[in-house]
């Protein structure tokens, strides 16, 4: 325990507008499920002294179907809720699969989708699925709400498009044009940090996203373009190697990550159908 917890201040707004007003007058560090923040605090790696608790903002918790047939997931929805939700299982099963592999049950009961994205770890397990799903975020401030495609949200290593006075309010997932695929390759079989996360949506213009292979979770645009243009799988694999920039770190090597990323692209393509996209078929 390397942080003096009793000296830290916490504001506990009841409603989103109160939270946003507090944040405008900041600076404040938001806390939702605390599963990343408290790891940093315990290790003495979080210098913030003042925090704002989002856990009471009930309006931002929960999953709803949208008119266009997509989903709207409140930023404070936990991965346990996502994991067990039938609508998510129908609309984007890959997201349920990702939720199931985030930490153990204890983490899934606390960690929120908004927190996972805002924390902006390149290894965030939910980010690749949501990127491949073409998700958008609603970012709220006292000035109003703006919509930002998730693809524009991660700007640099651990940096996002979120302003200091903004909070993620919801994740919007449009209807998916084809079957989704998710695979996390972690440091062990459970309760692991990913070495490579791969998510894909099979469609005429396939969408592919990866985590832990660059400074931010990313869309593999070259590989997507190659596949959309009808190139053969191995050309897409070559293109994928241009999309990613993995490094050697504590958990793995760049060489291994490239090998696995290539293998997962092949697996995605083989498992989600023959030559033509088959939107009706589930993985």
């Amino acid at each position: 325990m390397k942080t003096a917890f009793s000296t830290l201040a916490l504001l506990r707004p009841e409603r989103p507008d109160e939270a946003l007003a507090l944040l405008r007058d900041g600076p404040l560090t938001p806390i939702a499920g605390g599963t990343d923040l408290y790891v940093a605090l315990n290790a003495g790696l979080c210098p913030s002294r003042r925090f704002v608790d989002l856990s009471r903002l009930k309006a931002w918790r929960g999953i709803a179907a949208t008119k266009d047939g997509g989903l709207r997931i409140g930023a404070l929805t936990t991965f346990a809720q996502i994991r067990d939700d039938k609508r998510v299982a129908r609309a984007l099963p890959a997201l349920c699969a990702a939720a199931r592999e985030i930490g153990g049950v204890q983490i899934q009961n606390r960690a929120t989708v908004g927190g996972n994205l805002a924390n902006a770890s390149p290894a965030a397990d939910s980010a690749p699925v949501l990127l491949a799903a073409d998700a958008e975020l609603e970012l709220a401030s006292t000035a109003g709400v703006r919509r930002v495609p998730l693809g524009e949200f991660f700007v640099a290593y651990r940096h996002t498009a979120l302003r200091a006075d903004e909070l993620i309010q919801a994740v919007l997932i449009p209807p998916q044009p084809g079957p989704s695929f998710f695979r996390k390759v972690g440091t062990r079989a459970a309760n692991a940090i990913s070495k490579v996360v791969f998510a894909g949506v099979r469609a005429a213009r396939p969408r592919i996203a990866l985590g832990s292979v660059g400074p931010v979770p990313l869309r593999a645009k070259r590989a997507e373009a190659a596949l959309a243009a009808g190139a053969d799988l191995e050309s897409a694999v070559d293109a994928l190697q241009q999309d990613i920039a993995p490094i050697d770190d504590l958990r793995s090597t760049a060489e291994y990550r490239r090998f696995v990323a290539a293998g997962l692209l092949r697996q995605f393509w083989q498992q989600t159908g023959g030559r033509r996209p088959a939107p009706s078929r589930r993985r």
Partner: peptide, 8 residues
């Protein structure tokens, strides 16, 4: 179940 080391 939650990890009480991560709960304010």
């Amino acid at each position: 179940p939650v990890n009480s080391c991560l709960v304010p």
